[in-house]
């Protein structure tokens, strides 16, 4: 019988590797969006999309490996289920990032100049939400007492994103852009704001995970 802690070490290492891989995805996404906002649908932006896609696939592979390890190795069922649910929720974030870039590229959607500053702010706020929830995941490994305090900042970022989203959508439909472009732009804005929604969901799951372990 392997020592009780050996499997735990393996699982922790795999989960950390997955979170680090998602950091790379979001880093590539942020860089690609910055390129898009400066250069539009340039070759550099297309390369950024490809890189994000590749990194997202790698993160997916790591997540599936973690799932297989969790089912095979010795953790209590509720710990297994909680971690699986958490990883599934967390995986929505890189999925959204990849989708946003893919839609921009395939739909050949150029953000009209009046919208650029607001869209940039929206992306920044959602990236902040991601960074905050990513910080919170470290409490899985240390300082669990701080988990509860991690939800509030993500909640604030999500509220800010919601406000920016509403303002942008209103601006889009008040403009004189072609109707089809309005709809596509709206979708991109909403998808971008979904990143902070997904981050808040993860933060709430982390909080519940911590509360469940208090008897």
């Amino acid at each position: 019988m392997a020592p009780v802690w050996k499997h735990e070490k393996d699982i922790k290492a795999q989960i950390r590797a997955y979170f680090d891989a998602v950091d790379e995805v979001m880093g590539a996404f942020e860089k690609a969006i910055a390129t898009y906002l400066q250069e539009g649908l340039s070759e550099d932006f297309a390369a950024g999309d490809r890189a994000t896609h590749r990194l997202e696939s790698h993160a997916d592979d790591l997540r599936i490996a973690v799932e297989k390890t969790l089912y095979r190795k010795a953790l209590l069922p509720e710990s297994r289920d909680d971690l699986l649910d958490l990883l599934e929720a967390f995986d929505d974030i890189p999925n959204l990032a990849e989708t946003i870039l893919f839609h921009l590229l395939t739909q050949q959607l150029l953000m009209p100049p009046p919208l650029l500053p607001h869209f940039r702010s929206l992306v920044e706020v959602n990236m902040d939400a991601y960074r905050l929830v990513r910080q919170a995941t470290e409490h899985l490994f240390a300082q669990p007492e701080s988990m509860e305090r991690a939800v509030a900042p993500v909640d604030r970022a999500e509220s800010e994103s919601d406000a920016l989203e509403r303002a942008l959508v209103i601006e889009i439909f008040r403009s004189d852009f072609p109707k089809a472009d309005m709809i596509l732009l709206r979708d991109i804005v909403m998808k971008t704001s979904d990143i902070s929604d997904a981050a808040l969901l993860v933060a709430r799951r982390l909080d519940i995970l911590s509360l469940k372990r208090r008897t």
Binding site: V4, E8, L76, D82, P144, S210, R213
Partner: peptide, 15 residues
Amino acid sequence: NSLNLTLFGHDRLLR
């Protein structure tokens, strides 16, 4: 509760 364990620590102790 007083031990303030992470998910993994809690799990290990119970196992």
